[in-house]
């Protein structure tokens, strides 16, 4: 195993006890340190199951047939203690409402830290630092129902970030946000990834907003990994792209033009590159 691999799936398959067919089949994946990975695929492709397998909700909370291995930061998820996983992996779920438990923002950020039995001083410092990073210091005493959607999103993120995970998983973080707030959120993720040397995995439908930040794009379909590469390589015009994927317009345009024999120096995944290529 390469030192740079933070997450590894080796021949991993999973079938929930409640269902007849395998949700994920024969997954082989490696996710590197300090990278932003975007995970995409049509509904029911097995994305949620994959995430649950990384954070240990599978097999801890969901029972089923588990074959192969999932390794995160050197520990085998299958027989790891929850505490060990919780220290390494943070999971921000889709609906921020359902992951804010306490009556004030600061108390909620403290929730995970209290569970880790950290000392009061450390908890206070971490809360302060996290709130500063996310620009929510002024919200410390606010109750959840006093927050806007964007602020709830940040609070949910803060609760996870304060635990200082090496890996941060975000499940459709921008689906409820307006485009401007969503873009700001992605800028923040990009900054965090670089500054904190964190690996970030983002599940997202709206590729137009996130692809710019992605070091790697993984596409799942019917429980299998069908692409796992840099966005440029995934969208190379010579390669097939499944029709369910919301390909950004700049990339669609590139693929269409390249197929009709316009020359590009490399596949296009963003607006700026497209402009450069055309102006050339």
């Amino acid at each position: 195993m390469s030192v740079k691999d933070l997450i590894r799936f080796d021949n991993f398959s999973f079938k929930y006890n409640s269902r007849n067919d395998k949700v994920l089949e024969d997954i082989n994946l490696n996710i590197k340190k300090n990278e932003i990975t975007v995970l995409a695929g049509p509904t029911g492709c097995g994305k949620s199951t994959l995430l649950r397998a990384i954070v240990g909700l599978i097999p801890n909370m969901y029972e089923g047939e588990y074959t192969g291995e999932v390794t995160v930061d050197g520990i085998r998820i299958r027989d790891a203690e929850i505490k060990e996983i919780a220290k390494r992996v943070g999971f921000v779920f889709q609906n921020p409402e359902n992951q804010i438990f306490m009556f004030s923002v600061e108390r909620d950020i403290a929730f995970g830290l209290e569970n880790l039995s950290l000392e009061q001083e450390i908890i206070k410092n971490r809360i302060e630092e996290t709130m500063k990073t996310l620009n929510i210091t002024h919200l410390a005493k606010k109750a959840p129902h006093e927050l806007s959607d964007g602020q709830k999103q940040r609070t949910a993120l803060a609760g996870v970030l304060a635990m200082e995970p090496k890996i941060l998983i975000l499940d459709e973080p921008t689906s409820l946000l307006d485009p401007k707030t969503a873009t700001e959120f992605m800028e923040l993720m990009n900054k965090l990834c670089k500054e904190r040397e964190m690996s970030i995995i983002i599940v997202e439908h709206r590729l137009d907003l996130v692809l710019k930040y992605a070091d790697r794009l993984i596409v799942l379909s019917n429980g299998k990994v069908i692409s796992n590469d840099t966005p440029e390589n995934v969208f190379d015009y010579k390669k097939e792209v499944i029709p369910e994927l919301s390909v950004p317009f700049s990339t669609k345009l590139y693929r269409e033009l390249a197929k009709n024999s316009m020359k590009f120096s490399k596949p296009v995944t963003g607006v700026e590159e497209m402009i450069k290529e055309v102006k050339k």
Partner: peptide
Amino acid sequence: IVPPQIIKIFEG
């Protein structure tokens, strides 16, 4: 809101 990519590209 932010403009769609098509607007940004052609403006660019």
